[in-house]
Amino acid sequence: MEELKVRVDQKKLERAANVLKCVAHPVRISIIDLLEQRERLTVSELQDVLNIEQSLLSHHLTNMRDKGVVRTQRGGKNVYYSLTDFTISNIIECINGCKTF
């Protein structure tokens, strides 16, 4: 019988845990879903779809930026948000495919 062991590097596990803690909110998962559909979006564009207060949305985006999930880029008067790594959007496929949700 093969030896049982953890197959993921400790640093990678810690990073995954931090990212998962960060995105463990319906609004944040929705933001990931929207940013996967469009490469970059402004706060106004996100707010139009999510229908939440701008201050609450900004709080979520700041948290996601601080944890390295999204990045910002200024373009004229607008600040655009985009995913730092599109593989995070795999979480949407997992949620849609999971029978317990």
Score class of each variant (00 low, 15 high):
residue 1 M to I: 09
residue 2 E to W: 11
residue 2 E to Y: 11
residue 4 L to D: 08
residue 4 L to F: 10
residue 5 K to Q: 13
residue 5 K to T: 09
residue 5 K to L: 08
residue 5 K to W: 08
residue 6 V to P: 04
residue 8 V to N: 08
residue 10 Q to E: 12
residue 11 K to H: 13
residue 12 K to D: 08
residue 13 L to N: 10
residue 13 L to H: 09
residue 14 E to S: 11
residue 15 R to T: 07
residue 16 A to R: 12
residue 17 A to T: 06
residue 19 V to L: 13
residue 19 V to P: 04
residue 20 L to Y: 09
residue 20 L to N: 06
residue 20 L to T: 09
residue 20 L to E: 06
residue 21 K to C: 11
residue 22 C to W: 01
residue 25 H to P: 03
residue 27 V to I: 12
residue 27 V to L: 08
residue 28 R to T: 04
residue 28 R to P: 01
residue 29 I to R: 05
residue 29 I to H: 05
residue 30 S to T: 06
residue 33 D to Y: 07
residue 34 L to N: 02
residue 34 L to V: 03
residue 34 L to H: 04
residue 35 L to F: 03
residue 35 L to I: 03
residue 36 E to D: 14
residue 36 E to Q: 12
residue 37 Q to S: 08
residue 38 R to E: 12
residue 38 R to N: 11
residue 41 L to K: 00
residue 41 L to P: 00
residue 42 T to F: 02
residue 43 V to W: 02
residue 44 S to K: 12
residue 45 E to R: 02
residue 46 L to G: 00
residue 46 L to R: 00
residue 46 L to V: 01
residue 46 L to I: 03
residue 47 Q to G: 04
residue 47 Q to T: 05
residue 47 Q to A: 07
residue 47 Q to P: 05
residue 48 D to E: 10
residue 51 N to I: 09
residue 51 N to G: 09
residue 51 N to D: 10
residue 52 I to Q: 02
residue 52 I to W: 01
residue 52 I to V: 12
residue 52 I to C: 04
residue 53 E to V: 09
residue 53 E to H: 15
residue 54 Q to H: 14
residue 55 S to T: 14
residue 56 L to V: 11
residue 56 L to G: 07
residue 56 L to M: 07
residue 57 L to H: 04
residue 57 L to N: 04
residue 58 S to I: 06
residue 58 S to C: 08
residue 59 H to P: 01
residue 60 H to T: 03
residue 61 L to K: 01
residue 62 T to S: 10
residue 62 T to M: 05
residue 64 M to L: 08
residue 64 M to Y: 03
residue 64 M to E: 00
residue 65 R to Q: 09
residue 65 R to H: 08
residue 69 V to I: 13
residue 69 V to C: 04
residue 69 V to Y: 02
residue 69 V to P: 02
residue 71 R to Q: 06
residue 71 R to M: 06
residue 71 R to V: 02
residue 73 Q to M: 10
residue 73 Q to E: 15
residue 74 R to P: 04
residue 75 G to E: 13
residue 77 K to F: 06
residue 79 V to S: 06
residue 80 Y to D: 00
residue 83 L to F: 07
residue 83 L to I: 05
residue 84 T to I: 07
residue 84 T to A: 06
residue 86 F to N: 06
residue 87 T to Q: 11
residue 88 I to V: 14
residue 88 I to E: 01
residue 89 S to D: 03
residue 89 S to L: 03
residue 90 N to R: 13
residue 90 N to H: 13
residue 90 N to G: 12
residue 91 I to A: 07
residue 93 E to R: 13
residue 93 E to G: 10
residue 94 C to Y: 15
residue 94 C to F: 13
residue 94 C to R: 15
residue 94 C to L: 15
residue 94 C to V: 14
residue 95 I to H: 10
residue 97 G to K: 09
residue 97 G to Y: 06
residue 97 G to D: 09
residue 97 G to S: 12
residue 98 C to Y: 15
residue 99 K to T: 14
residue 99 K to H: 12
residue 100 T to V: 14
residue 101 F to R: 10
